[in-house]
Nucleic acid binder design. Structure first.
Lengths: 188, 188
DNA sequence: CAATCGAATTGACATTTGTCAAAAAGCAAA
DNA sequence: TTTGCTTTTTGACAAATGTCAATTCGATTG
């Protein structure tokens, strides 16, 4: 569970322990089977999810096609970020790709805690900073690298993903068609 | 100056006024001429910039070419976000495109204030949430719209930009060559 | 006005990626 | 093992975008 705070150098040990206890108090562990949805698009998402084991993807629809926006393997978090931030219906669904053990953290409860203990804002802020940098990198990737280069980078950075995920999801994540991905794989 | 807090419904009036006063205390107004740099890549950036009037762009280098990542017109903020967040040398430069009046806010001073008044973390967090959503939209744009569609959207959302900025900057912002942009403009 | 310089456009062609249809491969149930 | 279904690959062609070189346009300056 400590992974939840990965990279949060900002808090001292006591605060970390306290936060951990607080988080455990407002979260729930549950197993999900392959193909189940943690969250469905169109609904307001009120939870953050921590993947203890397994694999989850976030996807949305564009012209009737599923577009995968994010993969969350074990020891990482995800949520329908648009919904949680803006408290509105989400464009994203969260689909379990492998049988998974998931911790659900109630966001209303978390906000309650944030109000009581404003020092936790820092945790959220630092989390946002991290995912912002990730996103900025991804834009650069997409704008200035060919599909082939993007695939090579994914292979290098997250090789296990390719073993675990259908190629159509990889393709939509990379912003290309499945056929193009197949051809890239063929001659390399 | 109130624009700095645009969209920050999270703070009550008293806190806003207090924050405003604090910000004014740690910021500095200065005029910059066209072509001047607010910040140069390779250096650590320790400031946030508020554009009172004028226009600034953030750009970085890719294969020796300048890539414009962001335009900041009057009443918006920008900074070398990678540097400020990670306290390391920035990949970005910030170039003034029109004579501008700029408020520079010291980030170390701001952090000092955040330590003293942790309720301000919320301000930063909400700012990050906003720019995160913007970035996520931009990824979607880039992945699933043609150059033509991206240009049309920019025309619709920020028409004045096209009057004020060289087309080569618009092109790199859209992730296309200047020639392609020129052709898009020709037949539309 | 002529000369000049940078910005923008145009032309010709190459490369990348998409689209649609069909075939092959993989996998699970009967 | 056979059957049926899904995933992946392949083929043929079209559309989008890039590259490089040349030209035009516009503003500035002598």
């Amino acid at each position: 569970m400590n992974f939840l705070l990965g990279g949060l150098d900002g808090l001292d040990q006591a605060s970390k322990a306290e936060l951990m206890a607080d988080l455990m108090r407002i979260s729930q562990r549950k197993n999900f089977a392959k193909h189940e949805l943690l969250h469905q698009e169109g609904k307001v998402c009120k939870q953050l999810f921590y993947v203890e084991s397994g694999l989850v993807r976030a996807f949305y629809y564009r012209d009737g096609e599923e577009i995968t926006a994010h993969f969350a393997p074990e020891h990482t978090m995800l949520t329908a970020i648009d919904s949680v931030i803006q408290n509105k219906a989400s464009r994203y669904s969260l689909e379990v790709l492998e049988d998974s053990s998931i911790l659900s953290i109630s966001y209303p409860d978390l906000k309650e805690i944030l109000l009581q203990k404003p020092q936790y804002e820092k945790v959220l802020r630092m989390y946002l900073e991290r995912i912002y940098i990730d996103l900025a990198e991804r834009i650069e990737d997409v704008l200035f690298h060919t599909a082939k280069e993007r695939y090579a980078k994914l292979m290098k950075d997250r090789p296990s993903l390719l073993q675990r995920v259908q190629l159509k999801h990889i393709a939509s994540y990379l912003g290309i068609t499945q056929e193009t991905l197949s051809r890239i794989r063929a001659n390399s």
